[in-house]
């Protein structure tokens, strides 16, 4: 069965739609988590959600809904601990993470379910989605994107400087709780696509990729959503195109594709940042006659526009940088600055 045949199947079309909306929604909320330096929050919520899934298995209700409820409770608890805690907030979070994972595995055992059942939630099972699952994913994905984009100025202000935002009259606690709840909902939406253990990757890796090239918050957010959407759809197609007999879960291919996109933009980002640093103007300090030497023994090399040495603005003239020197042309000779 080749890829085109596969695309004709209902289950594959459903999976592609779910992947696309998950890939757009997860980085949208992930950008705010990275801005608040909470990149691992998604991971924490994912661990807590394992208990939610297990409770669903134990009680016979839909694991998706119990996961949503428990993930939201966990996210709110993490937010409250973070806000009240004096220090060592990360330790408090770690306690919650491991409690969630251990509780989930234990309760799954009590429910008489094997590791296989839990496995499909930990690593995703996108090709077994029903129509209702797809509508659920699309609906929540649209909600998450609409809320994050609609409240972008407020969420940005709160994430980048909560004290300023509070003095400006924004309800900082409310917005932080909103981000935590949205993150929890995202985790449960992405649970079916990439699995609980890899959710955080889809929230963070696209942002890390996008910020290599972007210069502003908006462009980072837009770029991250693009990378997330591409990685989710591309990763699913890669997983589907393996030859018959080899079954690869789409979660890992989606995350590895996103990581490959990061790996390919990272060197460009390093180069851009290096160039910006080298070209930044030198501060123009008042000339007190001390740091101004004429190069006496001639300068064999003639500096110019394309001599290969970085030309850096320095006050009203240009310095050429090489071998730890800053040379400024001055009439017939060069000055050492």
């Amino acid at each position: 069965m080749n890829l085109l045949d596969l695309l004709g199947h209902d289950f594959m079309q459903r999976a592609l739609l779910a992947a696309l909306f998950t890939g757009l929604a997860a980085p949208a909320i992930g950008t705010f988590l990275v801005q608040r330096r909470l990149a691992l929050l998604g991971d924490g919520i994912g661990h807590v959600a394992v208990t939610g899934v297990a409770l669903g298995l134990l009680t016979g209700t839909s694991p998706t809904w119990t996961a949503v409820v428990v993930a939201i409770l966990g996210a709110v608890a993490i937010e409250v601990i973070r806000e009240l805690g004096h220090t060592n907030g990360d330790v408090a979070l770690a306690l919650l993470f491991y409690g969630g994972l251990a509780g989930g595995v234990l309760i799954t055992g009590l429910a008489g379910q094997g590791a296989n059942k839990l496995h499909s939630y930990l690593f995703g099972s996108i090709t077994s989605l029903s129509d209702a699952d797809v509508w659920f994913t699309i609906g929540l994905g649209v909600c998450i994107v609409a809320i994050t984009l609609g409240l972008l100025p407020q969420l940005f202000a709160v994430a980048s400087d909560p004290e300023f935002a509070q003095v400006a009259g924004l309800r900082v606690r409310g917005y932080n709780l909103l981000v935590a709840v949205l993150a929890a909902v995202t985790v449960t939406v992405a649970m079916r696509t990439v699995g609980l253990l890899l959710v955080s990757a889809l929230m963070v890796v696209p942002v890390a990729t996008s910020q290599q090239l972007a210069g502003s918050f908006r462009s980072t957010l837009a770029g991250a959503m693009g990378v997330g959407g591409l990685a989710a759809v591309g990763g699913l197609l890669i997983a589907a195109s393996f030859p018959v007999g080899i079954t690869v879960a789409p979660g890992p291919t989606i995350v590895l594709l996103a990581l490959a996109m990061f790996a390919s933009t990272w060197p460009i980002g390093v180069w851009l940042r290096h160039r910006r640093r080298v070209r930044a103007p030198f501060p123009a300090v008042p000339d007190d006659g001390h740091d101004h030497h004429v190069i006496e023994d001639g300068h064999a090399h003639v500096h110019g526009d394309d001599c290969g040495h970085p030309a850096v603005q320095h006050g009203d003239h240009v310095d050429y940088v090489h071998d730890g020197h800053r040379h400024a042309p001055h009439g017939e000779h060069y000055d050492e600055h």
Binding site: T31, R37, A39, F156, S160, T220
Partner: peptide, 12 residues
């Protein structure tokens, strides 16, 4: 004035 994600001067 910087956070975990790049932001432009104007955005801040």
């Amino acid at each position: 004035a910087a956070g975990g994600v790049p932001a432009s001067v104007r955005e801040v």
